[in-house]
């Protein structure tokens, strides 16, 4: 049984890592700030979600699992809010930084 769990977590974490990698490539390659912002917020949030999912079966107690989920939720919240703020600031300054 735990072999399947291990397999699952490896796969999930690998996928998460891949999305993180994609996000950072986007950061480096995309032409202007807005698109870079887009790449970062989308890819990294998803990546983090997959990593957390992968870690869930390995974690000891239920409390730790809840903590992991809480962390994920917090990152989602603050990531989205800050991405929104930076985006609006960029648009108000008009054009590329």
């Amino acid at each position: 049984m735990n072999f399947a769990l291990d397999l699952f977590s490896i796969a999930a974490i690998a996928a998460g890592a891949f999305f993180f990698f994609a996000g950072s490539v986007g950061l480096l390659r995309f032409p202007d700030s807005l698109t870079r912002l887009h790449a970062l917020s989308k890819a990294d949030n998803l990546g983090l979600g997959l990593v957390v999912l992968g870690l869930l079966p390995r974690v000891g107690s239920l409390l730790d699992a809840l903590k992991l989920l809480a962390i994920w939720a917090l990152v989602l919240l603050s990531g989205a809010a800050s991405a929104q703020l930076i985006g609006r600031a960029l648009r108000r300054r008009g054009g590329d930084e």
Partner: peptide
């Protein structure tokens, strides 16, 4: 302050 900031303030601060 923009909406997103108020949202952040209302949810994040109590937590």
């Amino acid at each position: 302050p923009q909406g997103a900031l108020l949202l952040l303030e209302q949810t994040l601060v109590p937590l």
